[in-house]
Design a protein around this nucleic acid. Sequence first.
DNA 1: TATTGTTATACTCTATAACTATA
DNA 2: TATAGTTATAGAGTATAACAATA
Lengths: 162, 162
Amino acid sequence: MPAEDPGTKADGKPAARDLDRGLLPSLMGYALRRTQSAVFADFAATFAAAGEALTPGEFGLLVLVDRNAGLSQMALARALGIDRSTLVPILDRLQGRGLLVRRRSPTDGRTHALALTPVGAKALARFAKLVRAHEARIASALSTAETRTLIELLEKVRASSL
Amino acid sequence: MPAEDPGTKADGKPAARDLDRGLLPSLMGYALRRTQSAVFADFAATFAAAGEALTPGEFGLLVLVDRNAGLSQMALARALGIDRSTLVPILDRLQGRGLLVRRRSPTDGRTHALALTPVGAKALARFAKLVRAHEARIASALSTAETRTLIELLEKVRASSL
DNA sequence: TATTGTTATACTCTATAACTATA
DNA sequence: TATAGTTATAGAGTATAACAATA
């Protein structure tokens, strides 16, 4: 994902003055989108620099499967807030990379019991280290208290928007 | 986009206990993504309820064009942080809806001067009202001071992630 | 040569609808 | 009947590469 324009460029030209953003800077939704985009970019850069490839969504999925081994695709889709059909190609890819497996549930023939492979578990440990480094970087401009406050306020907004 | 699972459901069943999310709740990136998703859903619902169709990105684009009439597609793409080729189909759609026009720049034959149509300007006024209602709703769980703090912290994070 | 806008192409995320196997 | 997973399909957002027009 793209970084935002850094404003005035350092070349010789008239340097295309910053655009007028009107009311946008006062909108929480706008701040949320722009910050999310920058954070996503840092996440991608962190993983690319380490020679790994993973999206934030894939990381969240792997953590969920790791901590809830045996869960069904429906349960996972619900936890992720996506449709069950959306989940299929995502699992295909992760399974294709050897990170997780779909096993037949012994108790309900309709469902798959999801689990990380040993390779997936090892990879997740590496990924978690990278995520911690990424988190430290994006929070580097905030104090510990500010970081905690930010997460709390975000959660408050999310919880009230159900 | 989809609302997250509301946790324990209100039906009669065993009610599939909440999943273990491991370290995810302590991650700023995770909170950001989930909150953004909920806020996006509220934005969409607000517009749908009013019989309008617009995404947050389209709203931001229209505001930028409104406040910077005559700007080029390159300048707009840079301001939005997207590739110029990505912008083309987005402008096609908005132009197809009669909200904006591409005019030939008189000074530089390579560029298009973008501007809202009268219809687009009127629509933007309606949209802005809806956005204000949406913003009030998503901030309803926060005090005025908290809302200001949230936006400030988000901006701090974004500005440091350039 | 360099820049702007466009097209062609390719992924990914997202959804709805319909199919299948199972319950 | 109802549920789980899959497939088919479609739309939006994102990108890179190549091309035409213009500078």
